[in-house]
Amino acid sequence: MSLAKRCLAEVVGTAILVYFGAGAAAITLMISKGSSPPNPFNIGIGALGGLGDWFAIGMAFAIAIAGVIYALGRVSGAHINPAVTIALWATRRFPSGEVIPYIVAQLIGASLGSLLFAASAGSDAVMVGGLGATAPFPGISFGQAVLAEAIGTFLLMLVIMGVAVDERAPQGFAGLIIGLTVGGVITTTGNIAGSSLNPARTFGPYLIDHIMGGPVLWSHYPIYVIGPVLGALVAVFLYDMLAKE
């Protein structure tokens, strides 16, 4: 399979992730518009069904991720996340020359997903829903946000190692379990820093929000690079250490 075809698969996969996952967060904010959240920590997601709002967003991500892994996993590996690509490269499982093309493809795909979502849902998706962009919630510091993103991505990468990379892993479960893991992480940590776990997933909504007059959040972007990459790297090296005879 040529690198161009694999990069195209990463574009499509990441676009699906952002359209359906981040799109679910934007729709939740659009639905709760005008409601009175009970406290400042609640910005609208949770106003309707408490943690159930986050569970619903998590399930949207879970189903999209599972679908992408089963559909495109054999084509490109369906990383759809620069943190995953970097972690696999760092442990010499992914060729150096393909890291940048994969990451560029993921960033393009995420932007395309956000653009298509804005085109589908209208201007409120940008102005009210912010296209599901992630940012630290009220009272959450930079360090706390990085920590939450790192811990969430640590679990994601640990599960990828255990159910997919390890040759002893049971066959056929990777998409389902990895999707559900992301869904679970989002349910718990979504209201801390958005639970991006993925630099591309945050990049797409940030770029299209900026272009279309929505919120400009680039000052938060380092959180969504440092946290996920750090968490993924700790997970791969820890897994290799634990799994070695």
């Binding site: 399979m1 996993g73 054999r74 084509v75 590996g77 369906a78 990383h79 696999l88 990828i160 990777a174």
Partner: peptide, 8 residues
């Protein structure tokens, strides 16, 4: 091969 690596 296969997820998270391309099949060959």
């Amino acid at each position: 091969g296969g997820y998270p690596f391309p099949s060959k």
